[in-house]
Nucleic acid binder design. Structure first.
Length: 572
RNA sequence: GGGCCUGUAGCUCAACGGUUAGAGCAGAGCGCUCAUAACGCUUUGGUUGGGGGUUCAAAUCCCUCCAGGCCUACCA
């Protein structure tokens, strides 16, 4: 069986993520991981919290907590929600881990040795009141172009003109509002990405099966204007990974930390090391996933992310890895997603607009969200969440098509044969036709899942559910029973077996409901139906089962209206 | 300003340059009565954003215009 390494873009520590973040990387990555495990592959699925940077420091200050405590607390919150959404990470790590500290410093040291780091002294705005350097967008002022009073130091939101912080009229700190700003000199390390441009370009060119969205963004950065620019990888912050050259001090860089975008992707690797430590494994156990000289040469590595993360994954991180000169595993396939919009606008963490992961679980079980989000995943373009669409899709697909199927067959069996798989009769022509149809569909489902075609996979799965209802309608065991109880028994037996089949096939999408279906049918065998016919004879006559409670309750109009109102404004 | 993406039925989306542009939902009709007023069958909806061009053939390729979105390197 194959070995697949899967990483999801790591969510920022600053607050609870919304549904747009979830469908942008973690959820499709989980779908893929669950599917591959279901097929018997060896999977390492990693994710973590991204904890460094200015927003984390500010959020901690706002919460009145030291930043380390704040991050530790938010890590627990995010970890708990991820678990309740069924995100099946093999490890959910932290970019602030000691493992990541060591690896990040290690990579910086290797890059420096390879001559790929240069020191740059530059001028940056310092706020005396805030006692920190301010990133461009944390400086506000009046736009010299249009007169808008809340223009940011990088761009004016009103007239879209690109700005430099020093262009602003009456600049002030966006954090405190203080106008006590000064320009100070500060020294930083730059990664010489320009020196690796050709190497990266060739590497991108070799990835012919990547989506246009992915390669076009990378190509743009490589070839636009002066080509790939060197990038600052350090910051003047308190919270972060101290700048060190491997195990040694870095003269002149005391008190500085690595830029969050330098250390965050390295956490993908460090996370595996955290996994090893948490599970009592050795270094060799995680290195066989990440070092091609230590067993990772047969690993297929797939990354999932939102489109805004593409440049970092196609250029910066590969530059870091390649530049180290060490045989680290490079990404093989990169699946990026567009954005999910909320009711005509964007989901927004900063504005509290939309539905957040914790709120979602307060009103409905995870499977409802998983199904809707995955079956509407923003693959080819941005997509939109509306409550009406959500209600209709979920009610029809989950309650009517799948849930009702389980209900009708189990209840019919109970009333005519009792709560065990009925004996007698044999599968005939009609059953063979169903098996042939399902075989075709299951193979198509597998192809779509392999290709990470999320929406198409969902469509095919739904068609597989529908096939069960079609069969019952034409076989009509309730009519057959009156004239030929033996034949009806065989029909019901097939129907009950379909429930187990559906549970196995559906588990990547709706793991919780899938588990309930298996529990009701009294089986724990989740073997993938390589042979559909054999799979549909697994539950033998006499096997007892229980009629499950309503698998998916429908969303009522009252609920929908209530939620529409409740989530119309902004959070908090 | 530059780059990229998107525009197909009321809604969400399909469609290697190749029969008459297809599915699901919603709407209409019929059937069934095991089931969560569920299921099945049939069916009404499209000048593929506008205009021009290439081609035996265009939703698909080219040009142009319109509308929306994303990115543009110090937010992450």
């Amino acid at each position: 069986m194959a070995r697949i390494l899967i990483t999801s873009a790591i969510p920022y520590i600053n607050g609870i993520k919304h549904l747009g973040n979830l469908i942008g990387s973690q959820l499709p990555a989980d779908l893929y991981a669950r599917y591959l495990r279901g097929r018997g592959n060896e999977v390492m699925f990693l994710c973590a919290t991204d904890e460094h940077g200015t927003p984390a420091e500010l959020a901690a200050a706002k919460a009145g907590q030291p930043v380390a405590e704040y991050c530790a607390r938010m890590y627990e919150v995010q970890s708990d929600i991820a678990q309740r959404f069924g995100l099946s990470f093999d490890h959910f790590g932290r970019s602030s881990s000691t493992q990541n500290h060591h690896l990040t410093q290690h990579f910086a040291g290797r890059l420096a040795d390879a001559g790929l780091i240069r020191e740059v002294t530059e001028k940056q705005v310092y706020s005396n009141a805030d006692r920190r350097f301010l990133p461009d967008r944390y400086i506000e002022g009046t736009c010299p172009n249009c007169g808008y009073e809340r223009a940011r130091g990088d761009q004016c939101e009103n007239c879209t003109k690109q700005l430099d912080p020093t262009d602003l009229i009456e600049p002030r700190s966006a954090i405190s509002g203080s106008t006590d700003l000064e320009v100070r000199e500060t020294k930083h390390l730059y990664l010489r990405q320009s020196a690796m441009s050709d190497q990266l370009d060739k590497w991108i060119d070799s990835k012919t099966d990547w989506p246009v969205l992915t390669t076009s963004i990378a190509k743009k950065w490589l070839h636009d204007g002066d080509g790939l620019q060197d990038r600052g990888i350090t910051r003047d912050l308190d919270w972060g990974i101290p700048v060190r050259k491997g195990d040694e001090d870095w003269p002149g860089m005391e008190g500085k930390v690595f830029y969050v975008w330098f250390d965050a992707p390295i956490e993908y690797i460090a996370c595996a090391a955290e996994w090893a430590e948490a599970n009592g494994k050795s270094d060799a156990d995680w290195q066989r996933w990440w070092r091609t000289d230590k067993g990772a040469d047969d690993v297929r590595y797939v990354q999932f992310m939102g489109k805004d993360n593409v440049p970092f994954h196609t250029l910066s991180f590969p530059a870091t890895i390649l530049g180290s000169g060490e045989p680290w595993k490079m990404v093989d396939h990169l699946k990026s997603f567009n954005y999910l919009n909320y009711d005509g606008g964007q989901f927004s963490t900063s504005q509290g607009r939309g539905v957040f992961m914790d709120q979602a679980l307060e009103i409905l079980p995870a499977d409802y969200w998983r199904w809707w989000l995955l079956s509407h995943a923003p693959e080819s373009s941005d997509s939109e969440f509306t409550w009406e669409n959500f209600q209709q899709s979920v009610n029809k697909d989950l309650a009517d098509v799948l849930g009702n199927f389980v209900s009708r067959i189990t209840k019919f069996c109970r009333s005519k044969f009792g709560e065990e798989v009925p004996e007698g009769g044999a599968y005939g022509e009609q059953e063979e036709a169903l098996i042939a149809d399902l075989t075709t569909r299951v193979r198509a489902y597998e192809r779509h899942m392999e290709a990470m075609e999320v929406r198409k996979s969902a469509q095919e799965l739904r068609a597989i559910w529908v096939a069960g209802n079609e069969y019952l309608q034409s076989a009509a065991p309730w009519a057959t029973f009156k004239t030929d109880p033996e034949k009806a028994a065989a029909q019901v037996r097939l129907g009950l077996n379909l429930i187990r089949l559906y549970a196995v096939l559906s588990a990547p999408f709706i793991p919780f409901a899938s588990a309930r279906m298996l529990e009701a049918m009294g089986v724990s065998d989740t073997t993938w139906p390589e042979d559909v016919a054999a799979s549909l004879s697994m539950l033998a006559p006499g096997h007892s089962f229980a009629v499950p409670e309503v698998l998916f309750a429908k969303i009522t109009d009252e609920q929908r209206e209530d939620w529409e109102t409740r989530f119309a404004g902004t959070r908090d």
